[in-house]
Computed example of a mutant assay.
Amino acid sequence: MADFLFVPYSSHGHINPLLPVARELVARGDRVSVIVAPNFAPAVAETGARVLRLPTSSHVVVPERFDPVDSCRRLFKAFDDRRAIFAVLRGELRHRRPDLVVFDPMIPRVFRIAHDRGVPTVLFSTTYAQNEHVIASTVGRNLGAPVGDLLRRPWARRLHPWAVEAARDHELVLVNALPELQPAVRTFGERFRFLGPLTSSKTDHCGDLPWREIERRRVLLVSPGTVFARGPKFFGPVVEAFRDSDRLVVLATGPTDPESLGSLPSNVIARRRVPQAALLEHSDLFLTHAGMNSTLEALGAGVPMILVPRVLDQRVNARRVAELGAGIQLDAKWLHPVLLRHVAHRLTTDPSVRGAVERLKARIAGQDRPAAAATALQEAANGSCRAEVIS
């Protein structure tokens, strides 16, 4: 029996991929402990893992418009949250020595705390991996190729703490992404395991939604994610594009009150939160922020995407999906009903799009990826981590 201590970043996009892996390890008889914010504690407890609660809840919401006061508040809250994580981690390591500390690259200092106490670590990334080549390519697209080429030097790893920790020779790195979605995938060594989707595949018809209607109509699911808020200016063009059409539109508005969208046509449903995986099983199109979990869920369900990213990692995901032919990337500033109707028509009628989506769906189907992640962690805990890439 191995003993694992998970230190995730307490956010839906980071906790959700962890849950199936923790459940699998517990089912195999391993001991699993997770340091987590109270609002995620029930979900972690359901896996059978031991919950190490942080003192305060964590619910990150970034407003649609820049607000310096809100930004400062979130920054100070992030510092406080990390100090709490480090305090709980140090306290736990004073009393026992787990076989592995599995931590999120959003909290790189965990490596140093564990290393100082002689505990091996594994990185668990919920989006694509980073190294100097990925950094250089990303910077080069924004600041020009010469700047990007300069950052391909090994010292550039120090510009990104994730890459610094990932570069350590003794580490295993689990990546919640398909190799096809990983930028510069050939530049990563054998320690990187590109697992693909780890989020739950539960598709229960929960929530107060008209499931019979959903099952018989063409459905456009719209979800900008749980962190970055979108308001009426974002949802408005979508509503107008498909107003009174034969398509059913389901909006997941998140922090935005559905009432703020005004009177909606009969074919548009707005809820703060929806069971995304279940809805994707009945959707023929998905308008998404291109977060890694949402992207993988859509590909697993065989649904093409209108990709409207907001931050850097989402832009990288969106660009890659578009390059693979499974979606079209748009800028939120230029959303217009005519453009949305045109893009929706192309994505749902173009045979090349359907072929690309089906190929990626086939790559995901039929593999127990949480089990593969659990096996990799057990091997690392036993000191027999094999060199392979799950593909």
Rank of each mutant, 00 (worst) to 15 (best):
R272N: 06
V61W: 09
A163I: 07
L324C: 03
R141G: 11
A167W: 15
L5K: 10
D204K: 07
R212G: 12
L25T: 00
S201N: 04
H95P: 03
F111S: 15
L285C: 05
I306T: 02
E180P: 10
A318M: 05
L178R: 05
S33T: 00
D104R: 11
L123T: 02
G327V: 10
A166M: 15
G189K: 08
E24S: 02
L220P: 10
P275E: 05
L340F: 03
A374E: 00
R243A: 13
T187M: 11
V60W: 12
V389N: 13
V60Y: 13
S200I: 03
G225F: 09
F111P: 05
V60M: 13
S223H: 08
H170F: 03
P210V: 13
L54V: 06
P17H: 02
S294I: 04
A326Q: 03
T288Q: 02
H59I: 08
R90T: 15
V222K: 08
P265M: 02
E24H: 00
T256M: 13
F40D: 12
G29W: 00
F192A: 05
F111K: 12
P370R: 01
A229N: 12
P120T: 08
E64R: 11
I113H: 14
I390R: 12
P146D: 03
H205F: 09
D350L: 04
G118P: 08
D81C: 02
P17F: 01
A129I: 11
H342N: 03
N176G: 07
H205C: 09
V227K: 07
F40V: 08
I35E: 12
R271A: 14
G327C: 11
V69C: 06
H14K: 13
A114Q: 07
V311N: 09
L89E: 14
F234I: 04
P351C: 10
G196N: 14
L324I: 05
A163F: 08
P258I: 05
H336C: 05
F235D: 01
P38G: 11
E171F: 13
R65T: 09
H205A: 12
R230V: 06
T187V: 04
V110Y: 14
A2D: 05
A252F: 14
E171Y: 06
W334F: 10
I35F: 15
S33I: 01
L172C: 05
P38K: 08
A184F: 02
P179T: 02
G254P: 11
E379W: 00
G189C: 08
L19P: 08
N131K: 11
I214R: 14
A344W: 14
A114W: 09
V175A: 01
R50S: 08
A380W: 07
H14F: 05
P179I: 03
V303K: 01
V303G: 10
V164S: 06
L330M: 12
T295H: 08
E213A: 06
S266G: 14
S260E: 09
K361R: 14
G140T: 07
S71M: 12
P120F: 01
V238P: 11
R273M: 03
A2Y: 02
F76A: 10
I214L: 07
G383S: 04
P183I: 07
S58W: 15
T56M: 14
A362Q: 15
E215A: 11
A87H: 14
G262D: 06
P255N: 06
V60Q: 01
